[in-house]
Amino acid sequence: MTSYLIAIATSAGFYVLLALALNLQWGMTGLVNFGVAGLYALGAYASALATERLGLPVALALPLAAAVGALAALGLAGLSARLSGDYLAIVTLGFAELVRLAAMNEDWLTRGTRGMGIATRPLPDWLGREAYALAYLGLVLLAVLLAYWALERIRRAPFGRVLRAVREDPLVPATLGRDVQGFRLRAFALGGALMAVSGSLYAHWVLSISPDHFQTPVTIVTWMAVVIGGAGNNRGLVLGAALVIAVLEGTRFLGGVLPGLDAERLSALRIVLIGVLLIAAIRLRPQGLLPEPRIRAAELSATAAPQGDHRP
C-alpha cells in the first residue's frame, strides 16, 4: 500500500510539472497548447536516447531533453505565432500525433510499440527498492519545488506581468514598446522545456517507455489540472493536479463497484468521467478553484516602461 501511494504521488509530480508548464504557456500567456503529450514524449525519448545510446548520465540527459523541448516548442509557437489561438491548437495537436507516430515507427531508434527499456537510473542502486522509490519521489518533489519557485518568480517579475498583459490585450504592451512576439515565444519555449523535463524524469522512473504512454489523455489531464486549479495561479493548479489525480486513481476502484465491467470498458468509463468533469468544470467554474489575482494597470505601466520613456 505504501509503495502504491508513493507511486501515485510520484506520477502526480509529473503531472504537476506538466501543469505548471502549461500554466506558463496558457494560464499566464494565453497560448493554447494541445501538444502537451508530444512535448512530454519528446523529453522522455530524448533523455532515454541520450542515456541508453550515447551513454550520458541522467544529469546531462535531463538538460539535453529540456533543450530539445524548448526548441520544439519554439518552432511550434513560431509557426502560428501571429495567428489566432485555434491555429496554435491544431498545430500543437498535430505535432503531438507526429511525435507519437515517429516513436511508433522509427523502430531502429525507439523500438516502436514494443517499448524502449531504460537501464540508466539517476539515483544510486544501493538504495533498497522502497528507499529508492521514496528517494525518487523526493527528486520529483524537488523538481516541482524548483519549478514552482522559478515560475512564481517569473510571475512576479516584470517578464510575468508583461506576459499577462499580452494575454489580456496584445496591443497594450506593444504600445508600451515591448516586443510582444518575443515574450510569447520565450514563454512557450520555457514551458516546452519544463514539459520535456517532466518527460525525462518520467522515463527514468518507469524505465520502459512506449508510444502508448504519451497519448492525448495526458494532455487532457494536464488541462484539467490547470482549468480546475485556476489558470494563472500556480498554487491553485497544484491543488487542481492533486484533485485530478485523486479522481483518476479513485475511479480505478470503480471496477469493484461495477463488477459487470471488464478492464476495457472500465478504462473507457473512466475517460468518459474525466471528460465530463472537465466540461463541467469549464462551465461551472471557469476561473478555477483559486482564481488569479488581477494585475493593476498602474503596476504594469510601471514595469513595462522601466525607462519611463513612454510615460506622459
Binding site: 494541445f34 475517460i271 468518459v272 465530463v276 472537465l278
Partner: peptide, 8 residues
C-alpha cells in the same frame, strides 16, 4: 470543451 467532448 470540444477536445473533452471528443474523448467522451
Amino acid at each position: 470543451s470540444s477536445v473533452a467532448l471528443s474523448f467522451v
